[in-house]
Design a protein around this nucleic acid. Structure first.
Lengths: 169, 169
DNA sequence: TGCCATTGGTTAGGCTCCTTACTATTTCAA
DNA sequence: TTGAAATAGTAAGGAGCCTAACCAATGGCA
């Protein structure tokens, strides 16, 4: 449940202090990053806790969404690409979903190397069951922001993500 | 490196479609949440990748910051509270930091149950060494936002975090 | 003073995701 | 046609964090 960020107050003060010794440094950015780290951790924790109630994780939920969207069977390789995880990880995700009765697999008749994965009717029923609650939580968690504020928020996140991406090459 | 969010586009469309069947539902919030999940994942990945270059992780880095801030030795229990991890987790964090030569431990003379943990001089030197780069990255990753935008961004994150906290009780 | 609840730290095992290294199958090109 | 390269999936092991169950030391209270 990853409480990645810490000691908000203390870290904040410390970083500010260290920063003071480095001339020309941008203190606002430190404050912002501390908030980002805490925010990430809060949101991730909340997603995970929520999904855990259905025996799901973010990764497994994403697989289900992709399958629903596809409207038919998919191979593990396609799923892995769609969900942005490695194939080895997908093996694990599918395995758990299978044990939970969400999906079923069979060999791909067109390619002896691969499988196809498909939602079970039970899986579809359960997804329909949990979606309203899920969507409602999403909505309520943002209820204190106007649509415009959300739009601005998204814009800012995109800006930062793009920048972060270039920093890590 | 947790690529928690997936299939941005696909998920987006799917959720929108599912949402369409649920009357009175707030679609903007879905868009926002998808962006948040991706953003969290991007930032977390970036932090981790950055720290990995020094043999650190977010958790271990946080421990170092707290120790610097304290200016003296601390017990594992205090560190755990300060960093918001469980004590069992702190055992592991300290263990790795010790092996890496960042900190040293000894028994607490005032309480036979506990230890005290302290930065080594080598640890302090290395921190001083890496901080400018670290802070510089923070700064550059936000360079496309004005101070005011960052301030607004923080405000919005706080608003959402507070709400999310109440949703998970 | 002696007992027991509390607190400190560790161990063991779980979960999610990752990387690396492997086998099986298919494809392409010499 | 056949042998090398690419691709599908899996297994093993690692990192980070968690919970639960444990001893060891402490300290309040009868």
């Amino acid at each position: 449940m990853a409480l990645i960020l810490p000691a908000n107050k203390i870290l904040h003060e410390t970083l500010e202090r260290v920063a003071r010794e480095i001339p020309g440094l941008d203190k606002q950015s430190i404050r912002t990053h501390i908030s980002i780290a805490k925010f990430s951790s809060d949101c991730t924790g909340s997603y995970e806790a929520h999904f855990a109630r259905f025996g799901l994780s973010q990764g497994r939920f994403a697989v289900l969404m992709v399958l629903i969207n596809a409207g038919g069977p998919m191979t593990p390789a396609n799923l892995a690409d769609a969900v942005s995880v490695k194939r080895a990880t997908m093996t694990g995700l599918v395995d758990v979903l299978k044990k939970g009765g969400w999906v079923e697999t069979r060999r791909n008749p067109d390619d002896g190397r691969s499988l196809v994965i498909q939602l079970t009717s039970k899986g579809i029923a359960r997804i329909k069951d949990l979606m309203p609650d899920h969507l409602d939580r999403m909505s309520r968690s943002l209820a204190s922001l106007t649509d415009q504020e959300q739009q601005d928020f998204i814009t800012l996140m995109h800006k930062i993500s793009a920048r972060v991406a270039t920093l890590s090459q």
